[in-house]
Nucleic acid binder design. Structure first.
Lengths: 140, 140
DNA sequence: CTAGCTGCAAATCCTTTGCAAGAAA
DNA sequence: TTTCTTGCAAAGGATTTGCAGCTAG
């Protein structure tokens, strides 16, 4: 629990209420969260301003303590950066996410570097589909 | 050139100035374009309202005549749907895009369906890096 | 004490919508 | 004619910013 203090210090950030609260909330959540949802969760215990939430998310993202992703609805979702490379299978109905642990792309990336002369720093991969539960519901 | 008329008719859409203009602009462009950029291009020849541009893009997207993508800046980019599955290697500096024609994911998708029970309808894959030109510039 | 954070209110950017007039089938 | 599409102006939602007061180091 004191861990977050250390993470912040290590990144040259002051240890403030908002940062600790938001990191706590994100750690508890299995899903990436929108700024709005984070705000709602944080609101109960201690009242943060919306702009503070955004500013905090922004600095935490800059330091790569958390990861920001923009989804198809155009909104940003935030999650703890656990530093292990991961991809998801996402249900188009209920938005459930399943972690895919295999990643076949490192090899492909190396190949592409050779062919194109790019220096490749990362990739994004998502599979979209319908999960078994939603498939069942659709049949009703 | 009369082609677009046909595409529209085939999809049950009236053949209007805005639709034909926007399709023309998108066809000429190699890159996905933002609504703003499309608006600028169209503005010269015939004056369309911004809301009309958005509405047109929206209906064309609904009919899958064009494809809408939300990039990391949170803005939507539109491109003609050429119906051939494709992925890109994108330079993080100059945003240049290079088409990747191999796709190693169909097989992986089938595997995932078996394991998870999902019905997988699609996937997204992008490689991010720096292109040779930008790498050179960075060294200066 | 001092740099860096916060709250508040207002602004900005992209996108959507209501409505009355206009164009396609 | 009838239905769909447009322009205009105004609203909407997500995110950002300026500024003065506050807080961690």
């Amino acid at each position: 629990m004191g861990e977050n203090k250390d993470i912040l210090k290590k990144n040259g950030l002051k240890s403030t209420k908002s940062r600790k609260l938001i990191l706590e909330v994100l750690e508890k959540s299995k899903e990436p969260m929108s700024a709005q949802k984070i705000f709602n969760n944080v609101r109960h215990q201690g009242e943060l301003d919306f702009s503070t939430v955004y500013r905090t998310l922004s600095t935490l993202t800059d330091k790569s303590i958390i990861i920001k992703n923009i989804e198809d609805n155009g909104k940003a979702y935030y999650q703890i950066n656990n530093h292990n490379h991961s991809h998801y299978l996402i249900c188009s109905e209920c938005k459930k996410r399943i972690l895919i642990d295999a990643c076949p792309l490192e090899e492909m990336a190396k190949n592409l570097e050779k062919i194109t002369g790019f220096h490749i720093s990362g990739h994004k991969l998502e599979f979209i589909g319908e999960c078994p539960e939603c498939l069942k519901k659709d049949k009703l």
